[in-house]
């Protein structure tokens, strides 16, 4: 019934064409199976995702919805597939040889693994910050200008404004405003990591993926990153991997618990830490393993 309706309103020939500037294809609304229906408008919807490194299965049947404009934390013991899952969201896993993805990852309803999807544009929309700060060995200014310049020429005035805006956005402006043209490698680890966040913001992404962004930092720098995440919340959909449960509790709205490549449960953070649904989650949260 529903399928006929859709076909009437849109001839199938047009439906097969890319419908967005990204070359992405909208997935039929009827095909969608939202695992968590409480989000009216999720940013990401992951459906029955399997991921393999060669013959080694790293993710098994992951179903997850990531709410727009909120912070979702991924926790779990190391090696359980948190980073792998995060990298499936902007296809950084494509860089690893002999990997295989099965299932669907929908961004705004569009399957990012469809062969017509332009992965370059996907990664602009879904920014990533890595575990170890990795600024380019160039000036602070040039680091932020890097992303926008990939897409074309930007006037000096626009770039100056953008750099300032992004550094403000990453709560770094006051610390570096006098040394914008010095090497980014001269910054402390925490500042470098905030620079990496600012650099990602310059691309005007919709989603920010953070893979243990504070694990290489001292407690003070960690606190600043956590504050920053709080500030960015609302403007960006944020997914953060952390092995630090207190951090997850502090910064996130929702928490997903991964164990041995499966998403054991994904609930609002408060609920996860007070009334976990599964025994494994409770064992992990109470420190019985991991």
């Amino acid at each position: 019934m529903e399928t006929t309706l859709v076909q009437e309103s849109k001839p199938p020939k047009e439906k097969a064409k890319p419908v967005s500037a990204l070359g992405m294809i909208a997935v039929d609304a009827a095909e969608r199976r939202t695992p968590a229906d409480e989000f009216a408008d999720p940013s990401f919807e992951v459906q029955q995702l399997d991921f393999f490194y060669g013959d080694n299965q790293a993710l098994t049947q992951v179903d997850m919805a990531i709410p727009r404009g909120e912070v979702t934390a991924l926790i779990g013991p190391s090696g359980c597939g948190k980073s792998t899952f995060l990298r499936t969201l902007n296809r950084m896993n494509d860089l690893v040889a002999e990997t295989r993805v099965e299932g669907k990852v929908l961004l705004d309803g569009q399957d990012i693994y469809h062969r017509q999807v332009d992965v370059v544009e996907l990664r602009r929309r879904v920014g990533m910050v890595f575990q170890r700060p990795n600024p380019f060995p160039i000036s602070i200014y040039e680091n932020i200008a890097y992303g926008p310049r990939l897409q074309g020429k930007v006037s000096k005035a626009d770039m100056d404004a953008l750099v300032e805006r992004c550094l403000h956005g990453a709560a770094l402006w006051d610390e570096v405003k006098d040394r914008l043209h010095t090497s980014a490698l001269g910054l402390s680890g925490g500042q470098q990591q905030r620079l990496c966040i600012a650099r990602a913001l310059a691309n005007e992404p919709e989603v920010l993926l953070l893979d243990e962004p504070a694990s290489a930092l001292d407690p003070k720098a960690t606190a600043r990153i956590e504050d920053l995440i709080g500030q960015l919340r609302g403007d960006y959909t944020i997914v953060i991997v952390t092995h630090n449960m207190q951090q997850a509790a502090r910064v996130s709205d929702h928490t997903g618990f991964f164990y041995k490549g499966r998403l054991v449960e994904c609930t609002p953070t408060a609920q996860m830490f007070t009334r976990p649904e599964h025994q494994e989650t409770e064992d992990y949260l109470t420190g019985r393993f991991g």
């Binding site: 380019f136 890097y146 992303g147």
Partner: peptide, 27 residues
Amino acid sequence: VPSSLRQASLGLGATPWQTVRRVTLPA
């Protein structure tokens, strides 16, 4: 050249060639 720099570039939406031209080769 540390692969973290390549990842940073690709993660910002650079094509592989842009990554070579702007990051890897200069380094």
